[in-house]
Simulated scan of single mutants.
Amino acid sequence: MIHSICILGDSVAKGVIFDGVKNKYRLLKDSFAQIIASQNNIPILNLSKFGCTISTGEEILKKHEGVLSRYDYTILEFGGNDCDYNWAEVSEHPQKQHICNTPVPDFLDKYKELITRVRQSGGKPVLMNLPPIDPKRYFQWISKGLNGKNIMNFLGEVDRIYRWQEMYSTAVEDLAVKEQVPLIDIRSCFLTNGNYSDYLCEDGIHPNEKGHLLISKAIRENVLV
């Protein structure tokens, strides 16, 4: 029986959503972590942070390594910010070579090190892949106040955003196999539930309340069984 869980990741794991009414990001009261905690009476330490990349995750882990052994599992959720670009720079200089926040080779090296450190601290790592994004919504979102034409020139086509982000999700899945770490496949939960965009906020990338329900179900089925 699972008695406690630690979570380390980005805004998805933190439970951040975009509130279209208030036109700002906010924490969802019934995030997947809160749902798991309340429905299963399990204390959860959520160390996740908005905008967190794998490098930021390493710094957060350094501060909390001493407590990981107290938790049955440490769920790691990274990649969404690592694959992102500085869109303002892309908008201004679309012909230049732009590098995302964490290129895949660096992302995998840092993620592998993170897994090792969780284990060395007495924790049991579990990886979570990425929810799919809606490329059209996300393109509109990142283009606000910028030169959308220039960004599109850099991308070539809007669906490249989806494939690029998907590459990071696949990299996480492959890493889980290589490092023999359990994987919570939340991506399939979205893709197999009709129009997956219905489970995303209007920014096209953050799961909405319905999306967090899907994630909580995936965790129950993969971790709490």
Rank of each mutant, 00 (worst) to 15 (best):
E58Q: 12
E58V: 07
E58M: 11
I60C: 02
I60N: 00
L61W: 09
L61Q: 05
K62P: 01
K62A: 11
K62I: 03
K63I: 01
K63T: 04
K63M: 04
K63W: 10
H64M: 01
H64T: 10
E65G: 12
E65C: 06
E65F: 06
L68W: 06
L68F: 14
L68Q: 07
S69T: 02
S69R: 14
R70Y: 15
R70D: 10
Y71M: 08
Y71K: 02
D72N: 10
D72A: 13
D72Q: 06
Y73N: 08
Y73R: 05
I75T: 09
I75G: 00
I75C: 11
I75P: 00
L76A: 11
E77D: 08
E77W: 07
E77N: 11
E77T: 00
E77S: 08
F78P: 07
F78R: 05
F78K: 00
F78S: 01
G79Q: 09
G79D: 07
G79T: 04
G80T: 02
G80L: 03
G80A: 13
N81D: 03
N81P: 05
N81S: 12
D82L: 06
D82T: 03
C83E: 08
D84S: 12
D84Y: 06
Y85H: 10
Y85L: 13
N86M: 12
N86T: 04
W87E: 12
W87V: 02
W87R: 08
A88K: 13
A88F: 09
A88S: 11
E89S: 13
E89G: 12
E89Y: 05
E89K: 14
E89P: 04
V90P: 11
V90A: 10
V90F: 15
S91G: 05
S91H: 00
E92N: 15
E92R: 05
E92D: 13
H93I: 10
H93N: 14
H93Y: 15
P94Y: 05
P94E: 09
P94K: 03
P94F: 01
Q95E: 15
Q95M: 11
K96H: 02
Q97A: 04
H98R: 09
H98C: 03
H98E: 04
I99N: 04
I99D: 07
I99R: 08
I99F: 01
I99K: 13
I99L: 07
C100H: 06
C100M: 13
C100Y: 12
N101D: 07
N101M: 09
T102Q: 00
T102P: 04
T102K: 00
T102E: 09
T102D: 07
P103D: 10
P103S: 03
P105K: 14
L108H: 02
L108P: 09
L108G: 08
D109E: 05
D109H: 06
K110N: 06
K110G: 02
K110P: 02
Y111M: 14
K112S: 14
K112Y: 12
K112Q: 13
E113R: 08
E113N: 15
E113W: 05
L114E: 06
L114N: 04
I115P: 03
I115W: 02
I115F: 03
R117P: 04
R117E: 14
